[in-house]
């Protein structure tokens, strides 16, 4: 099951690369780098989440930071 999800996300990443290939060639160096970094970040996160679905994320951080306020107002 896990390997299927991993395969699926890799296919999405490859499709994005293929779709954007003409524009990618024309782009400046900086844009190319941002494109690859964003895509790599997405793929890495996807892989991490497939193997560890309970990975603490931004929601947990927000929850931790604002919990006292919520408790104060008894929400």
């Amino acid at each position: 099951m896990k390997i299927e999800f991993l395969l699926g996300s890799s296919i999405v990443v490859v499709l994005i690369c293929l779709l954007e290939w003409p524009r990618f060639q024309r782009a400046h160096k900086k844009e190319k780098a941002t494109f690859l970094v964003l895509l790599g970040l997405g793929m890495a996160l996807a892989a991490a989440l497939i193997y560890k679905p309970d990975l603490p994320g931004p929601s947990q951080l927000v929850d931790y930071m604002f919990r006292p306020f919520a408790r104060m107002l008894k929400l």
Partner: peptide, 8 residues
């Protein structure tokens, strides 16, 4: 160029 990677 950033649209699709951000979408993912």
């Amino acid at each position: 160029l950033l649209v699709f990677p951000s979408g993912f």
